[in-house]
Design a protein around this nucleic acid. Structure first.
Length: 584
RNA sequence: GGUGAGGUAGCUCAGCUGGUUAGAGCGCAGGACUCAUAAUCCUGAGGUCGAGAGUUCAAGUCUCUCUCUCACUACCA
């Protein structure tokens, strides 16, 4: 049973990288679950701040900008807008969607580095890196290609051969060339970088991860422990790049020897969670209502009583459980560490990988043209890749929309509201006696609602969706038992009971649908004439289920909403498969 | 190669610290109902729980070996 008290919850989603609109796997693995969770917690009356941002630094951003013929900064402006729009189309309820290129993040990143250095957690070291003379830039390992020394495959990348799967070092490649320009004029040069001494933090990190063994998913702790067990290595947190956050000294001047170098994108990206929160708080409308970023991030200023929940794909776990915590702990300052970390596996495309180049998979901007956001939100959450990778197929998508949304929920709303309009003048009727049917649905809800709340609180999305569906199905079963259309012939009052309870179930389903399918939820609640201020469910109070079944004022005028979910037809599947590749 | 996560009904997945006839949804078959988007409700058929060995009074659940899939492997993010 949930405690009836408001909590302050900070939610962050892994930052979507700037170089393109994200595919459905990215959406399903971080932004969407973070949104559903945020909405659910708000619904239950908690104070939620959901922060996200575009991750804008790094080599791929520079290269993508060059390919688009734009300056990096213009390119990032453009793509940030595109991603913000895509998010809005999917009804992602960010309290703030910021940018890692913001002034606040720049300042924080530089401050963190100075604090880490002062505490002995940074060290300047020399390493060898591939330099492309023709491109005039250093190349990350995977941007160097050549012939694989193991299998003689000619398009092997510097980090791994895609043909034989062997892990490589760029110096192993035979006949290496730049993947950017194709130039063979590449050489190995010495370059200086700052290293984050993660190794010195190992014991502290291990102890901290241990404290979360019980409350973090296996996926999360096992990845963190794996890295710790293998021996945490120090990590370079600067790169030879122009685009990014400059490395400065205590006076704010470029650090000696660090011209042409910037912080590694993975050093500043998580710091952008804080930066974006500061940017959120700096907005006039937030300041006007007394919003402050400190209570979310500074443990000396209230963040001790904030619950911080992160959402991410499994590739991000090491950075969030080890690198960023090293930054936080190593700063010696009272920053908030993550409390709960939910990691997801991948959504795969017919069992294979999503691929932009091969046009495999669906991207957010395309998806929204195909089907309303509610459809995607429901399907992706009901099939969230929680315990292992989850394959997306059009057939499964069709099945969950048609069966769950259209038949079970949509049809339920439609059947009882239109019957009320037809037989009871569109008004919530009074009258009738409690029968076994009403007792049955009351018991059913008394059992299922607390379970649903608990699944949301523990972020078990598949289970939360399954429970939600079961509640909808119980509504249909209730109508079968109560059969108002049968009673109507002999006892209109008794029919009224069935209709009234049915309508109250519609209202309840509308409220419960808000975190998952917000558009349909709004249509339902509008049709039930429920005022905006009355659409929350404080702390998931289930102490009086009977009251929930008679909450609508008798005589309240309601209407039958338009069809909530149109079904997906076989022709749609064919057309989409044609367009997006589909089964191969 | 190393490490991790998975392999449970045709499909997608639940099964916590081992304990009566292994569960749900979809799909399929039969029935009921007619308020509804041919929707809904009920009933039923379907599994030697990847393979093999072991521990135990008892194993899907613990141990070992093998096998398949996926991911990560630190300069992509």
């Amino acid at each position: 049973m949930s405690t009836p008290k408001s909590e302050r919850i900070l939610v962050t989603s892994a930052l979507p990288y700037i170089n393109g609109v994200k595919h459905m796997g990215n959406l399903a693995g971080s932004m969407l679950p973070a949104d559903v969770y945020s909405r659910a917690m708000r619904l239950m009356g908690h104070e939620v701040l959901y922060i996200c941002a575009t991750d804008e630094h790094g080599t791929p951003a520079e290269l993508a900008a060059a390919e688009a013929g734009l300056s990096v900064s213009d390119y990032c402006d453009k793509m940030h807008t595109a991603q913000a729009e895509a998010g809005a189309n999917f009804k992602l309820s960010y309290d703030y969607f910021g940018r890692s290129s913001s002034e606040a993040t720049r300042r924080l990143t530089q401050d963190f580095a100075l604090a880490l250095e002062a505490n002995g957690f940074l060290e300047e070291r020399t390493s060898k890196q591939v330099y492309s003379v023709a491109d005039g830039r250093y190349l990350p390992d995977r941007y160097v290609e050549g012939t694989c020394p193991n299998c003689a495959f000619e398009g092997a990348r510097g980090d791994q051969c895609d043909n034989c799967g062997k892990l490589l070092d760029p110096v192993d490649l035979i006949n290496p060339y730049s993947a950017v320009s194709g130039s063979h004029e590449v050489e190995i040069r010495d370059t200086n970088h700052l290293y984050l001494k993660q190794s010195d933090m190992s014991n502290k990190l291990r102890a901290w991860v241990e404290t979360h063994r019980a409350d973090w998913p296996t996926l999360t702790t096992s990845i963190a422990m794996k890295w710790l067990d293998e021996g945490l290595r120090d990590r370079a947190i600067t790169r030879d790049l122009d685009w990014g956050i400059p490395v400065v000294d205590a006076d704010g001047n470029v650090r000696e020897g660090f011209d042409g170098k910037v912080f590694y994108v993975w050093f500043d990206a998580p710091i952008a969670y804080i930066g974006a929160t500061q940017d959120w708080a700096a907005q006039d409308h937030v300041k006007a209502t007394g919003g402050a970023w400190e209570k979310f991030w500074r443990t000396d200023k209230g963040a001790d009583s904030t619950r911080y929940v992160q959402f991410m794909g499994k590739d991000n776990v090491a950075f969030h459980t080890l690198s960023f915590p090293t930054t936080i702990m190593g700063s010696g300052q009272p920053w908030k560490l993550v409390d709960e970390l939910k990691a997801f596996n991948w959504v795969t495309w017919y069992g294979g990988k999503f691929s932009t180049s091969q046009k495999r998979g669906v991207f957010m901007d395309q998806a929204i043209d195909i089907a309303p956001s509610d459809y995607w939100r429901w399907h992706l959450m009901a099939n969230a890749p929680e315990s292992s990778d989850a394959a997306f197929t059009w057939e499964d998508f069709q099945a969950s929309i048609n069966s769950d949304l259209a038949n079970v929920l949509g049809n339920f709303v439609n059947r009882i509201t239109s019957y009320c309009v037809k037989k009871f003048d569109g008004k919530v009727p009074a009258g009738g006696a409690i029968t076994d049917a009403e007792k049955w649905i009351e018991n059913e809800l008394a059992e299922r609602l607390p379970r649903l709340i608990s699944f949301y609180e523990t972020r078990e999305f598949r289970k939360a969706m399954a429970e939600t569906r079961a509640i909808w199905a119980a509504g249909n079963e209730y109508l079968t038992q109560a059969a108002p259309w049968t009673h109507y012939k002999t006892d209109v009052d008794q029919a009224a009971m069935g209709v009234r309870v049915g309508l109250n179930l519609v209202a309840l389903f509308g409220i419960l649908a808000q975190p998952i399918t917000p558009d349909a939820a709004e249509k339902i609640l509008d049709a039930m004439n429920i005022p905006e201020g009355n659409r929350s469910w404080k702390f998931g109070d289930v102490s009086n289920v009977a009251a929930l079944l008679d909450a609508l004022p008798h005589g309240l005028e309601i209407s039958a909403p338009p069809v909530l979910f149109t079904k997906i037809e076989a022709e749609d599947i064919e057309a989409w498969t044609e367009k997006f590749g589909g089964a191969v």
